[in-house]
Design a protein around this nucleic acid. Structure first.
Length: 778
DNA sequence: GCTTTCGGGATTTTT
DNA sequence: TCCCGAAAGC
């Protein structure tokens, strides 16, 4: 192991000096704070790592340090991440540092994969068998639908999706059926929410299954009810590390606390790393509070702030820091850079509509491309995925290669889930849900009636679906045709299970797909996406080869829903702000900075001030993704759900520091009479427009104006929503030739009406195209 | 049992 | 506006 310090050093005591005269190579290049975070191995430690401050480096180096100084072996370190991607990355980096394989770190993984591992070992203690199935959202919803039907609950009125969402929320909070308050559960299906939850859990046990939430909850139950088991893990884990701690939810917190209880809280060797300013998953149950109160939970915890940013230019950091400072609930960090160069200013560009936004960003990208900037170094980060389409369309026209990150995941595709269902039944014939999924896929002439009979028998006999089917085909209960079909299908499954022992599982999968008629089903399908589906199936078989056993592959599938898109092609990335966390690019485009879209109105409605702060953190995440250039844009008009809506500039724009920001105006690009300047005004304190339209009075006026128009536009936080141009009942209240007043452009005469878009000749500003919601009669 | 049509809904997303 | 998922028709 060249370059790695010898393994027989004495355990590290307080900091460097005892490590020997010369520091080990892995500490090279760490700044003092990072180094301290690595070397403070004993006791609780909170590392607050701002964006781009080398968080992952600290984590991996810390583990490398523990390993090389022999404080613990790999198997004695618990290190938890949220995503499989992060876990994979850490494994790779530790391997690079320590120079050996990572096989020795069995407890590095996500909360869920580690929980699954623990549960399989002690399954019988939580009423499961060790081969329990892990349900994903899709399975979960199918199961809930069955329950709703059994309870005679109208699925139209009480959608299974909604209940799945509630279950998720409860499980995130660590609530069992008995803990759910009536108030919480009561409204669903007229007070049957709690019973449904209990029924659902009972059903899971019958199916020998656990959903994602259960992986954690059952683990918590296991630890609480079996102190001896918990003690075993206390002895095992000498060091615990948690990445992205700001994203942890209540259940994960409880899980962690139990595991940390082996010692008094003030002595726990627990290191959590995170950034309260990057907590963007509150809507999914993450509790920023976990990180905010770490010091209370673990008295005497050391807190180390990493504030030196190695990623972005001064202007970008200044913009991000200035913005995030508007949040009240934060621990407070300030990013600093050693680089004297401030770099390019952050630009804010106002455009007429989202089409122009896509066009101008496309042009800019082409310019960069001409200057030999790789497309890989550029990204477009949007708030909501519907914004992506406009860019895709534009880039296709331009012939600009792009890739969409996120989006429908590979393992969620129908053909993949079907194929997996076949494999699951082969691996575990009592997997009723999977059997049910594919029993009539491809179509085998088994309808509702047949399947219902199967399920009822299974319920009466308290047996898995396959076993029930086996029984039924020996009776006269089914029609001869169906009986034969089922007998043949079961025969096929028997044959496959038999073969599973003899041949490689990838090969087996191929045979199953062919012999079941599944491949043929898509080959005969004329729809345009069937070739893609066949391609995906091939890809699935290919990816199976990487696994030793079928079981190993299926476990991976259930827990690792992401797929590495190792895409060599040079392309611009398009993704949501959420999926951009943890990534970085030279140039980042941030479109759609408009009130209602970003910050999202819905978040603010649902979570109030906390929601606004989370949106602001999202903006912070977005800006800090940029190394050299951040380009913000906003559109004055946006079509959402087919409705034209006028938009006000995002309040976040006001929170950017004037000296790091440059306001551009492409108003002219809309046929020469674009409605530009409104944004500029937000940075120009002389302009009356800004001061006026933000006052409560102006907003009230707008609201009144809105309510006066019958069936008129809705009000969004005091802002008028533009009406559809196509809506005949909503032609503008303004007439040609009428004299009007615009808050920015002053007096003018209406020279054109097009739905609620008006062309107006202003006395001073000339001809402009504006929305009527910005206009008052003079 | 399979295909068409209608209606409702429409952020962010991992495991 | 557009897409997806459940009832009606063949």
């Amino acid at each position: 192991m060249p370059g790695v310090p010898s393994l027989d050093r004495p355990p590290a005591g307080p900091i460097t000096s005892q490590l020997g005269r010369r520091d080990p190579a892995y500490l090279d290049g760490l700044n003092p704070e990072q180094r301290e975070a690595v070397l403070t191995t004993e006791g609780p430690l909170l590392v607050l790592a701002g964006a781009g401050t080398g968080k992952t480096r600290v984590l991996t180096t810390r583990i490398a340090h523990i390993l090389t100084t022999r404080l613990a072996r790999g198997a004695e370190i618990l290190s938890v991440t949220f995503t499989n991607k992060a876990a994979r990355e850490m494994k790779e980096r530790i391997a690079r540092l320590v120079g050996s394989s990572v096989e020795g770190m069995p407890w590095l993984g996500t909360f869920h994969s580690i929980s699954a591992r623990i549960l399989r070992r002690h399954a019988e203690l939580v009423d499961l068998r060790s081969d329990f199935t892990i349900l994903d959202t899709d399975d979960q919803i199918r199961l809930i639908k069955q329950l709703l039907e059994a309870e005679n609950i109208d699925e139209k009125r009480w959608p299974a999706r909604q209940f799945a969402g509630m279950l998720d929320t409860w499980k995130n909070r660590g609530l069992l059926p008995r803990d759910v308050s009536e108030a919480d559960a009561g409204f669903f299906a007229n007070g049957r929410g709690r019973k449904l939850y209990a029924d659902y859990q009972a059903r899971l046990k019958v199916l020998n299954a656990a959903d994602f939430g259960d992986l954690l909850l059952e683990c918590i139950r296991l630890f609480r009810d079996n102190p001896d088991v918990l003690a075993e893990y206390h002895r095992r884990f000498k060091y615990m590390l948690v990445d992205e701690y700001q994203d942890s939810n209540v259940a994960q917190y409880l899980w962690l606390r139990l595991l940390a209880q082996g010692k008094p809280a003030s002595e726990a060797n627990l290191c959590v790393v995170g950034d309260d300013d990057q907590s963007i998953y509150g809507w999914r149950g993450a509790e920023v509070d976990n990180i905010l109160r770490f010091e209370k939970d673990f008295p005497g915890a050391k807190v180390i702030k990493l504030e030196r940013n190695y990623r972005s230019t001064g202007n970008i950091l200044s913009a991000a820091s200035h913005l995030i400072a508007f949040n009240e609930s934060r621990l407070g960090k300030t990013l600093q850079t050693d680089v004297a160069e401030k770099g390019e200013t952050v630009s804010v560009t106002s455009v007429w509509d989202s089409e122009e936004e896509a066009r101008s960003i496309g042009e800019e990208i082409e310019q960069f491309q001409r200057k030999s900037e790789p497309l890989n170094s550029m990204a477009i980060l949007v708030r909501a995925s519907f914004q992506m389409r406009e860019f895709e369309e534009r880039f296709i026209t331009l012939g600009l290669s792009y890739r969409v990150i996120g989006g429908p995941r590979f393992y969620e595709r129908r053909e993949i889930r079907d194929a997996i269902a076949y494999l699951r039944v082969v691996a575990n014939p009592s997997d009723s849900l999977s059997f049910e999924r594919i029993v009539n896929v491809p179509k085998r002439g088994l309808g509702d009636t047949t399947i219902r009979t199967l399920m009822e028998t299974a319920r009466h006999q308290n047996a898995p679906l396959t076993a029930a089917t086996r029984m039924l085909i020996e009776t006269e209960e089914l029609k001869p045709k169906q009986r034969t079909t089922l007998r043949e299908l079961l025969g096929q499954f028997d044959a496959w299970s038999e073969r599973a022992r003899g041949i490689p599982h990838a090969e087996l999968a191929e045979q199953i797909l062919d012999e079941s008629g599944y491949t043929a089903m898509w080959q005969n399908d004329k729809s345009p996406d069937s070739p893609g589906r066949l391609e995906n199936l091939k890809e699935l078989v290919r990816s199976m080869e990487e696994f030793e056993t079928l079981g190993g592959f299926l476990e991976h599938i259930s827990l690792v829903m992401d797929r590495d898109t190792v895409d060599a092609e040079d392309a611009v990335s398009i993704m949501t702000l959420h999926s951009a966390k943890g990534l970085e690019f030279d140039t980042v485009f941030l479109p759609g900075w408009e009130e209602g879209l970003f910050p999202s109105q819905r978040t603010m409605d649902e979570l109030g001030r906390a929601g606004l702060e989370e949106e602001r953190r999202l903006a912070y995440v977005g800006i800090t993704r940029a190394r050299k250039r951040a380009r913000i844009s906003l559109s004055q008009n946006r079509r959402i759900h087919g409705l034209w809506q006028s938009a006000l500039p995002s309040r976040f724009l006001d929170e950017l520091p004037a000296d790091a920001v440059e306001v551009k105006d492409t108003g002219s690009s809309y046929g020469g009479y674009g409605y530009g300047g409104a944004t500029a005004s937000r940075f120009n304190k002389m302009d009356p427009f800004e001061s006026v339209y933000e006052t409560p009075g102006w907003q009230r006026a707008q609201r009144q104006q809105a309510s006066r128009k019958s069936a008129g536009p809705m009000t969004i936080d005091g802002e008028l929503v533009a009406r559809s141009v196509n809506d005949p009942g909503s032609s503008s209240a303004f007439k040609l030739g009428e004299t009007v007043l615009h808050l920015k452009f002053g007096h003018g005469k209406v020279s054109g009406v097009e739905g609620n878009k008006l062309t107006i000749d202003f006395e001073t500003a000339g001809r402009k195209k504006v929305l009527d919601s910005f206009i008052r009669k003079a």
